[in-house]
Design a protein around this nucleic acid. Structure first.
Lengths: 368, 368
DNA sequence: GCTTAGCACTCTCACCCCGAGAGTGCCAGC
DNA sequence: GCTGGCACTCTCGGGGTGAGAGTGCTAAGC
């Protein structure tokens, strides 16, 4: 969306309108502007400029004879051109750092817990809705598989995927198996598949295992018939962690219950949030989408400031969601810093691929 | 709370008031009552009875010259004495059954997914907030442990606990280990510990493993120093699955934003919901708590109809949360049926103990 | 003695009106 | 190009009002 070049005065006034509106949530008029910011201009002059900015599509009036409020485009210009990031205080940095890297009651820390703590701190600090996607692999190199007899006809397949990912799948055979043949079969698989990309394995595992000499053929068959799931790339879907709905639901922007409904619906349904944040997994660095720039209609009255973080070979997204009227200049710094610290901390953690909340069961008879 | 014996007429009228109020969310007066339900009484007579019920603490007036609304105690009497469960239609049964036992895009089904689908169906069917706690073990018998080398210094401990529970914990040693010594160590552990209650193992694992002859002493030490976590009973905490906030947030009961805030806070914080539902894990069968009966202040304007379900040796809770003005007679049947089907379906599923969303990492040097 | 009709009274709610306040656009003059 | 002045517009809150619903009380009826 091309915007005509703005004069210095226009830029200045646009910036002031945005700042004032972010603060007050009320339309801002020429008089207020002059008084509050000590402008060396008369209200009438400012009015002319406001009019120009309105024609350029950057401001709008809720009704005749109200003040102006920024449009989505107005925020966009503000964010891209006018705003300068606010540096974080040491205290704020500490809040974020401690939340992400702090110990919790003596237990081991896993990715999900770290994300939980992060969104908690981020949500409370910004008093908005903090959201984060669990890390996912972009490309996966198969390291190895281990097969563990669970007792009865159930087998646990443990896959390690470079780097630091773990997948466990419960498979079910129609007969007991002894752990020697499990071990042997796993070894065979590892010999032939280790180091290959998951994608390649899915496509060619049958050929690669064709003339298998060792190993238990029943087990091998079970593996092959479930190879699509076993060797899937960790799915692009994943868990969402969020925190802070109480913060944003009281904002004047959520006075209309229908907005509450669509936002909460989007959070529960997860798809919307996943699409929006997932889309950014690829984009490095910080992203800001404002209002209608969010393709998803459910939250077109919201803005999102989010950033990409890495976790070993995987990557995820962390950000803050709120009404378009949010303190972008501050949030940019906060989110950026958060993502940075997350990347540092998550470097070391092993985490499960896919939802991994429970072990999925795959029965033998599901083979085609 | 002892309530004086009610006359037939009082019971009848109390029931009608509750029914009418559940339907309309508006105070109900004598005239309405007579007209709507074709009572063979004059409004004046009904008024006298209403007055009596008010004195008994079962009804109240929002203000003089408004109709009556039920008090929490009024609902309690209704639920305990007056109400008879409404049978479910076959269609409703099918909705629930299909959601719980239905296949999903060809993948294996795990407990978490089943719970997700269940609360989704339950929330949409009742148009309230459906909540469920993942199944937890009440007493745990240790079956066996397997140790899998993950590559590098990391080891995956896979514990199976009777019946159908799985726990995976990532342990970290300061040196590489070969899988033979892992296997040997695991075998030793299994020989001495298999069949014992988790609790007993936590208390006496050191003595039991004292004169260990086989196995790698470093690995054994790692296991011992993390025995509290490894052999913990699956924690009483767990994941909450819920669905339906958009349904209830639009109800007139949630007109005041502070209620939205406290409910959403409770859902995000999880503790409140966990306490309320967790408390019932022990109680078999169906439970109804109404308004202030919920000890937790945050949701004293809500009622919960919940039931206990089993999953192998484990058990969990499923229920519906809404304003005290809810269709108890219908919900009782729905929740009861849901819990029953869940118990059937979950009988077969293997699920992870504890949060298990990711594998926890326990480093060797954390030993005391 | 329970039930009922009648009546006076109360309280809420929706509606309307009105004035204050904030803000605008425009125009003429500096 | 900027500014002061002016007429105009729109929202918002307060106050008044009447309809509607409901109550409690009392006295009369079955």
């Amino acid at each position: 969306m091309p915007v005509r070049t703005l004069t210095e005065r226009e830029k200045n006034i646009l910036g002031l309108v945005v700042k004032a509106f972010i603060h007050d949530a009320a339309p801002v008029g020429s008089r207020t502007l002059v008084r509050r910011f000590g402008l060396e201009l008369s209200p009438a002059t400012v009015r002319n400029t406001l009019n120009d900015l309105e024609e350029a599509g950057l401001l709008e009036q809720p009704h005749t004879s109200a003040g102006r409020i920024p449009t989505d485009l107005g925020y966009r210009v503000y964010v891209d051109v006018l705003m300068s990031p606010v540096e974080l205080s040491l205290g704020e940095q500490a809040v974020i750092r401690d939340a992400i890297s702090g110990e919790i009651h003596g237990y081991g820390r896993d990715a999900a817990t770290i994300l939980d703590q992060t969104v908690r701190a981020l949500g409370d600090l910004t008093r908005l809705l903090a959201v984060s996607l669990e890390p996912r692999l972009e490309k996966g190199i198969f390291e190895k598989i281990e097969l563990v007899a669970l007792g009865g006809p159930k087998i646990l397949a443990v896959l390690t995927i470079a780097k630091g990912f773990l997948r466990t799948v419960v498979l079910e055979l129609d007969a007991r198996v002894d752990s020697d043949s499990l071990h042997e079969t796993a070894q065979l698989l590892n010999e032939r598949l280790s180091g290959l990309p998951m994608r390649a394995i899915r496509e060619s595992v049958r050929e690669r295992m064709r003339d298998a000499s060792a190993g238990d053929p029943k087990i091998l068959k079970l593996i092959l018939s479930n190879s699509e799931e076993l060797f899937a790339l960790p799915s692009t879907e994943g868990n969402i962690h969020y925190w802070g709905t109480p913060h944003i639901l009281v904002l004047p922007e959520f006075a209309e219950p229908e907005r509450i409904v669509s936002l909460m619906g989007a959070l529960e349904e997860k798809d919307v949030i996943l699409r929006i944040l997932g889309r950014r997994r690829g984009e490095k660095g910080l992203t800001i989408t404002i209002g209608e720039e969010n393709r998803e209609g459910e939250i077109q009255f919201c803005s999102i400031v989010s950033s990409h973080y890495t976790a070993g070979e995987g990557s995820g997204t962390v950000g803050v969601l709120g009404p378009t009227r949010m303190e972008y200049s501050k949030l940019v710094s906060i989110v950026d810093y958060t993502a940075r610290i997350m990347s540092e901390v998550l470097e070391q953690v092993v985490y499960t691929a896919d939802k991994g909340k429970d072990s999925a069961i795959v029965r033998e008879d599901r083979s085609r």
